Simulated assay, not measured.
Amino acid sequence: MDDKIERLESLIALQDRTMEKLSDQIFDQQKQIDGLKRLVERLAQKVRNMDEEMENGGPIDVPPPHYNG
């Protein structure tokens, strides 16, 4: 009977460690998702700004400052 209890305690401890690892992984993934959301929003804003420039007749291709042609 004691062996069964020890085995169950061992399994519970293993499950607790596994759940902690999974929780840490979910936390890390959520941080990555939040960062990607911010990046997508910045890129979307740049695209909106480019669309506005095109609608207002602004230059689409601006030559670089060193261009002498």
Rank of each mutant, 00 (worst) to 15 (best):
M1W: 07
M1A: 13
D2C: 12
D3Y: 13
D3I: 14
D3E: 13
D3H: 13
D3N: 15
K4E: 09
K4R: 12
I5H: 04
I5V: 15
I5Y: 08
I5T: 09
R7I: 03
L8C: 02
L8E: 00
L8M: 07
E9F: 14
E9I: 14
E9K: 15
S10R: 14
S10I: 03
S10D: 07
L11W: 02
L11I: 08
I12S: 06
I12F: 10
I12T: 03
I12M: 11
I12A: 12
A13W: 09
A13P: 11
L14G: 00
L14M: 04
Q15Y: 13
D16I: 13
D16C: 10
R17C: 10
R17P: 04
R17D: 13
T18V: 08
T18G: 01
E20T: 05
K21L: 14
K21D: 06
K21V: 10
L22H: 02
L22I: 04
L22K: 03
S23H: 12
S23M: 15
S23K: 14
S23C: 15
S23Y: 12
Q25M: 10
Q25W: 03
I26Y: 07
I26H: 05
I26T: 05
F27T: 03
D28A: 15
Q29N: 13
Q30I: 08
K31V: 07
Q32E: 11
Q32T: 08
I33M: 09
D34A: 12
D34V: 04
G35Q: 06
L36Y: 02
L36S: 00
L36V: 01
L36M: 07
L36P: 00
K37Q: 11
K37Y: 10
K37L: 15
K37D: 05
R38L: 15
L39Y: 00
V40S: 02
E41K: 12
E41Y: 05
E41F: 09
E41A: 15
R42N: 07
R42F: 10
R42G: 03
L43G: 00
L43F: 05
L43W: 01
L43D: 00
A44Q: 12
A44N: 09
A44V: 09
A44W: 03
K46Q: 07
K46E: 06
K46V: 07
N49K: 08
N49Y: 06
M50A: 12
E52M: 15
E53N: 10
E53C: 11
M54P: 04
M54Y: 09
E55G: 02
E55Y: 10
E55H: 09
N56Q: 08
N56L: 13
G57M: 09
G57T: 02
G58M: 06
G58V: 01
G58W: 02
G58L: 07
P59R: 13
P59E: 05
I60G: 04
I60F: 13
I60L: 15
D61I: 13
D61Q: 04
V62C: 04
V62I: 14
V62D: 01
V62G: 00
V62P: 04
P63N: 01
P64G: 08
P65H: 00
P65K: 00
H66Q: 06
H66E: 08
Y67C: 07
Y67I: 02
G69E: 01
G69N: 05
G69W: 04
G69I: 05
G69A: 06
